[in-house]
Amino acid sequence: SNREKAKQAFKELLRDKAVPSNASWEQAMKMVVTDPRYSALPKLSEKKQAFNAYKAQRE
């Protein structure tokens, strides 16, 4: 689905920018907000969900 693709793109973005798994949401956003993939997930709640999944995978 498109939403799954968007989630993957967002997680790839976090990986590409080397966002550490112990980063806070605010720290992570400063690192990725300028990338076009930041807008892949329109809802903030979805971004946070993908971010938390990313962190869980990295730990």
Rank of each mutant, 00 (worst) to 15 (best):
S1C: 14
S1Y: 14
N2F: 00
N2L: 02
R3N: 15
E4I: 13
K5E: 12
K7A: 14
K7M: 15
K7G: 07
Q8H: 07
Q8I: 12
A9D: 14
A9V: 13
A9R: 06
A9T: 15
F10C: 02
K11S: 13
K11H: 10
K11F: 14
E12A: 09
E12Y: 01
E12S: 08
E12M: 01
L13M: 15
L13G: 07
L14T: 03
L14V: 06
L14I: 00
R15Q: 12
R15K: 11
R15F: 14
D16T: 06
D16Y: 00
D16L: 02
D16I: 02
K17Q: 09
K17A: 11
K17N: 12
K17L: 02
A18Y: 01
A18R: 13
A18H: 14
V19M: 07
V19T: 09
V19I: 04
P20I: 01
P20E: 06
P20Y: 02
S21E: 12
N22E: 14
N22Q: 09
N22W: 12
N22K: 03
A23Y: 08
A23N: 07
S24N: 04
W25T: 10
W25C: 11
W25R: 10
W25P: 09
E26V: 06
E26I: 03
E26P: 10
E26K: 10
E26R: 01
E26Y: 02
Q27E: 15
Q27S: 05
A28V: 08
A28N: 05
A28I: 02
M29E: 11
M29T: 08
M29W: 04
K30F: 01
K30L: 05
K30N: 11
M31S: 11
V32N: 07
V32I: 15
V33H: 15
V33W: 13
V33S: 15
V33N: 15
T34H: 14
T34Q: 13
T34E: 13
D35Q: 00
D35I: 00
P36F: 07
P36T: 08
R37E: 04
R37Y: 00
R37T: 01
R37V: 03
R37C: 01
Y38Q: 08
Y38R: 04
Y38M: 02
Y38S: 08
Y38A: 07
S39N: 15
S39P: 03
A40V: 12
A40K: 08
A40T: 07
L41G: 08
P42T: 12
P42I: 08
K43M: 11
K43D: 15
K43S: 15
K43E: 14
L44T: 07
S45I: 04
S45Y: 00
S45G: 08
S45H: 13
S45A: 11
E46H: 01
E46G: 01
K47M: 04
K47G: 07
K47P: 06
K47N: 01
K47C: 02
K48F: 05
K48R: 09
K48A: 04
K48S: 06
K48Y: 08
K48M: 13
Q49G: 07
Q49T: 06
A50M: 12
A50P: 06
N52A: 12
N52V: 11
N52F: 00
N52Y: 09
N52I: 14
Y54R: 00
K55A: 07
A56L: 14
A56V: 12
A56M: 11
Q57Y: 01
R58E: 15
R58M: 15
R58P: 13
E59C: 09
E59A: 15
E59H: 09
E59P: 05
E59S: 05
